[in-house]
């Protein structure tokens, strides 16, 4: 079974999760046999393209484009290359892009799709993967019955593993028809340099216990020192203290960082659902009975605005050592 990975690009480089996907595919190929093929669409530098081989991609394909085709055309382009590469397992990142395109691709290939998977298949014949349901309140073993199998791997759940191979690198152009679209882009507002919440290894998150949006300076300061992304609980985003994109929980983002800091978050069941994939959870709350302590690994009972300066000081110290 050849495995094809859709590796997203950003400003000429692979998005970080691409390497995790390739690592996963390489390990999976140990079970299924077949080739590990990475496919990037967009602008990507030569030096960057080669890196895919460090993690096990033996065929590296880049389809060059100044800007991406629209969702429908991007999906069709992928279907064309999946067939060309004779791939049977197709791997996407479990993020907004993967979730947008993978189902359309699945419709075209008549493929079963498993989103939010967190590990290798239990077995490949039948093909059984485990995925989270109810935002992590339960786990489901899913059999993908179709010939083509589409998997979306949750970030930070497999890790990046060096496994270098000698690759074949190809660059191709995209036919002009793929850039025709009924959608006209009027404006884009890019964000650069920011650590993406979905990919972050460390997340510093806060809730209503902060008392006021004016107190977020210390959350951002701690995040900046640790190289972390910032997040928040639902009431905080509902009240407009923080943008919706930062909302973590059952109806927000589901994340799997190595460390999740919860400052002034009580730990409602919907919030916990979104963070249960975290390796280590640190909770600070003034209420010692707050449910967040039931899922935390380290807990501090106290006022967040008094605890934060101490943690900032300790973090700064450890980072300059």
């Amino acid at each position: 079974m050849n495995i094809l990975i859709y590796t997203e690009t950003r400003e000429g480089s692979f998005k970080k999760q691409g390497f995790e996907l390739i690592s996963y595919a390489k390990a999976l190929s140990g079970m299924t046999g077949g080739e590990v093929i990475s496919l990037a669409i967009g602008e990507i530098f030569d030096e960057e393209l080669k890196k895919a081989a460090d993690y096990g991609a033996s065929r590296i394909i880049a389809l060059e484009a100044d800007q991406l085709p629209d969702n429908r055309n991007l999906s069709k382009l992928l279907i064309q290359w999946i067939k060309q590469a004779n791939a049977q397992v197709i791997l996407f990142a479990d993020n907004n892009t993967g979730k947008a395109i993978a189902p359309f691709v699945a419709a075209g290939l008549k493929a079963g799709i498993a989103t939010g998977i967190t590990g290798l298949p239990e077995k490949t014949d039948p093909f059984i993967v485990t995925r989270k349901i109810y935002s992590g309140k339960a786990l489901a073993k899913i059999q993908v019955k179709s010939h083509y199998k589409i998997l979306l791997l949750a970030a930070n759940t497999f890790g990046i593993k060096n496994d270098p191979v000698v690759p074949v690198i190809e660059r191709h152009n995209i036919e002009a028809e793929y850039f025709e679209s009924p959608n006209k882009i009027i404006s884009t507002e890019k964000q650069t340099g920011k650590i993406l919440l979905g990919e972050a290894e460390i997340v510093v998150s806060a809730g209503r216990g902060m008392k006021s949006p004016d107190n977020w300076g210390s959350i951002e300061e701690l995040a900046q020192i640790l190289g972390a992304a910032t997040a928040c609980s639902r009431p905080v985003s509902d009240e407009g203290w923080r943008p919706h994109g930062e909302h973590v929980g059952q109806t927000g983002k589901v994340i799997n960082p190595n460390i999740y800091f919860a400052f002034g978050i009580s730990g409602a069941i919907q919030h916990v659902a979104g963070i249960s994939g975290s390796k280590v959870i640190v909770a600070v709350n003034k209420d010692h009975e707050a449910p967040i302590f039931n899922v935390a690994d380290y807990g501090i009972v106290g006022d967040v605005n008094q605890v934060l300066p101490k943690m900032i000081e300790a973090a700064r110290k450890i980072k300059t050592e």
Binding site: N71, R72, S75, K99, A100, I101, A102, P103, F104, V105, A106, A107, G108, I113, T115, G116, R131, K132, I133, Y134, S135, A140, Q250, T251, V254
Partner: peptide, 14 residues
Amino acid sequence: SDHNGSSVGGLLAG
């Protein structure tokens, strides 16, 4: 919010 599949919209469009 039950199966978190994120698939129905894209499948339907496809």
